[in-house]
Measured scan of single mutants.
Amino acid sequence: MTEYKLVVVGAGGVGKSALTIQLIQNHFVDEYDPTIEDSYRKQVVIDGETCLLDILDTAGQEEYSAMRDQYMRTGEGFLCVFAINNTKSFEDIHHYREQIKRVKDSEDVPMVLVGNKCDLPSRTVDTKQAQDLARSYGIPFIETSAKTRQGVDDAFYTLVREIRKHKEKMSKDGKKKKKKSKTKCVIM
């Protein structure tokens, strides 16, 4: 069974824990209790493949930012979460993405942009803004509501699919490099 290491990042209060708990335990946590770091595991079937999701729910508070490099190193894919009623959390996505790329030393890291709290009427981040940002990053965008469960499975499952595509691409690139290195030079 394939294991996928997913990391949920975003500013404090955007609903990272609520999304994760909704996926794992099928219930909505409405009281806000700032996370330092929590880890969850769940076995699911995605596109006919049974897999184990190892999900790291991270601290959004700035005082825990020193811990970010460590979990970013171990993560295979990242859910970059903002709240649709919090423009600052949307603007912060850029910083999370840049930090992930720096730590992973790669421009090509599996990510999904997630606009959470889409059940709320007080939207300050337009869907088109988020779609445009995701398009500019070359990553999928999904709106979710941890409260109603809308888009929750889709967000995590899409990230797994992005990781699969990335692994497939990397193995193809690896095979191309191996083929090239088999060419021999004969000096007579």
Rank of each mutant, 00 (worst) to 15 (best):
E3C: 09
E3Q: 14
E3M: 15
Y4S: 13
Y4V: 13
L6T: 15
L6A: 14
L6M: 13
L6D: 03
V7H: 15
V8A: 09
V8G: 04
V9W: 02
V9S: 08
V9P: 02
G10D: 02
G10R: 01
G10Q: 14
A11T: 14
A11D: 08
A11Y: 10
G12V: 10
G12S: 13
G13F: 11
G13L: 08
V14R: 14
G15T: 01
G15C: 02
G15I: 09
G15Y: 04
G15M: 01
G15N: 01
K16E: 02
K16W: 01
K16I: 00
S17E: 01
L19W: 03
L19G: 13
T20P: 00
T20Q: 01
T20D: 02
I21S: 08
I21A: 04
I21F: 01
Q22G: 04
L23S: 15
I24W: 02
Q25N: 15
Q25S: 09
Q25C: 06
Q25H: 03
N26Q: 10
N26K: 11
H27M: 15
H27R: 10
F28V: 02
V29W: 05
V29C: 11
D30H: 15
D30Q: 12
D30M: 13
D30W: 10
E31N: 13
Y32G: 00
D33Y: 01
D33P: 00
D33N: 02
D33F: 01
D33Q: 02
D33I: 01
P34F: 02
P34Y: 02
P34T: 04
T35G: 00
T35A: 00
I36R: 00
I36Y: 01
E37L: 04
D38V: 01
D38H: 00
D38W: 00
S39T: 01
S39C: 15
Y40S: 00
Y40E: 00
K42M: 09
K42L: 05
K42G: 08
K42Y: 04
Q43C: 05
Q43Y: 06
Q43G: 11
Q43D: 09
V44E: 09
V44R: 10
V44Y: 15
V44D: 11
V45Y: 06
V45A: 12
I46R: 14
I46M: 14
I46K: 12
D47A: 09
D47Q: 10
G48I: 05
G48T: 10
G48N: 10
G48C: 06
E49L: 04
T50A: 10
C51E: 10
C51T: 07
C51F: 07
L52S: 13
L52T: 15
L52W: 13
L53G: 10
L53N: 15
L53M: 11
L53R: 02
L53C: 13
L53Q: 07
L53D: 01
L53F: 10
D54W: 13
D54L: 05
I55S: 06
I55T: 14
L56A: 01
D57P: 00
T58R: 00
A59N: 02
A59S: 13
A59P: 01
G60T: 00
G60A: 01
G60Q: 00
Q61H: 11
Q61K: 13
Q61P: 03
Q61T: 10
Q61Y: 04
E62Y: 04
E62T: 07
E62A: 05
E62V: 03
E63G: 04
E63A: 07
Y64E: 02
Y64V: 02
S65W: 07
S65R: 08
S65T: 09
A66L: 09
A66R: 07
A66Q: 04
A66G: 14
M67L: 08
M67C: 04
M67V: 04
M67P: 04
M67R: 06
R68Q: 10
R68D: 04
R68H: 06
D69N: 15
D69T: 12
D69L: 06
Q70G: 12
Y71V: 07
Y71W: 14
M72P: 15
M72K: 08
M72T: 05
M72V: 03
R73D: 10
R73Y: 13
R73H: 14
T74E: 13
T74Y: 11
T74C: 06
G75C: 04
E76R: 05
E76L: 06
G77T: 11
F78Y: 08
L79W: 01
L79T: 02
L79H: 00
C80N: 04
C80E: 02
C80M: 10
C80K: 02
C80F: 15
V81A: 06
V81P: 06
V81Q: 09
F82D: 04
A83S: 14
A83V: 03
I84L: 13
N86C: 09
N86M: 05
F90Y: 08
F90L: 12
H95Q: 11
Y96H: 10
Q99L: 05
Q99S: 05
I100E: 02
K101N: 08
R102H: 11
V103I: 14
V103E: 14
V103W: 15
K104C: 15
K104V: 04
D105C: 04
S106G: 11
S106C: 11
E107S: 07
E107I: 07
E107G: 08
E107M: 13
D108T: 03
D108C: 08
D108S: 11
V109G: 03
V109I: 12
V109W: 12
V109N: 07
V109R: 05
P110C: 04
M111Y: 02
M111N: 02
V112G: 01
L113A: 08
L113S: 03
V114I: 10
G115M: 11
G115K: 03
G115C: 13
N116R: 00
K117F: 14
K117C: 09
C118Y: 09
C118I: 10
D119G: 11
L120M: 10
L120C: 07
L120F: 05
P121I: 08
P121N: 13
S122P: 08
S122N: 14
S122R: 05
R123I: 07
R123D: 12
R123L: 09
T124C: 09
T124L: 07
V125C: 08
D126G: 07
D126P: 08
D126T: 08
T127H: 05
T127Y: 08
K128S: 07
K128F: 07
K128T: 07
K128G: 06
Q129G: 14
Q129T: 12
Q129F: 15
Q129E: 04
A130W: 14
A130L: 11
A130K: 12
Q131P: 09
D132W: 07
L133V: 10
L133T: 10
L133C: 06
L133E: 10
A134E: 15
A134T: 07
R135W: 10
R135A: 12
R135N: 07
S136Q: 12
S136M: 10
Y137F: 04
G138T: 03
I139D: 04
I139Q: 07
I139L: 15
I139K: 03
E143D: 10
T144F: 04
S145W: 04
G151W: 07
V152E: 09
D153C: 05
D153M: 06
D153K: 07
D153S: 08
D154K: 06
D154T: 06
D154G: 06
D154S: 06
D154R: 05
D154N: 06
F156C: 10
F156Q: 02
Y157L: 09
Y157C: 11
Y157M: 06
Y157W: 05
T158R: 03
T158Q: 04
T158H: 13
T158L: 09
L159Y: 02
L159W: 03
L159K: 02
V160G: 07
R161S: 15
E162H: 07
E162P: 15
R164F: 07
R164N: 03
R164M: 10
K165I: 08
K167I: 05
K167T: 11
K167F: 05
K167M: 09
E168L: 07
K169R: 07
K169M: 06
K169H: 15
M170C: 05
S171G: 04
K172Q: 03
K172A: 14
K172P: 02
K172F: 03
D173N: 11
G174W: 03
G174R: 10
K175Y: 10
K177D: 12
K177P: 05
K177E: 10
K177R: 05
K178C: 08
K178I: 11
K178L: 09
K178A: 09
K178Q: 10
K180V: 15
K184I: 00
K184M: 02
C185Y: 04
C185V: 14
V186Q: 14
V186L: 09
V186S: 08
I187Y: 13
I187F: 06
M188L: 05
M188V: 07
M188S: 10
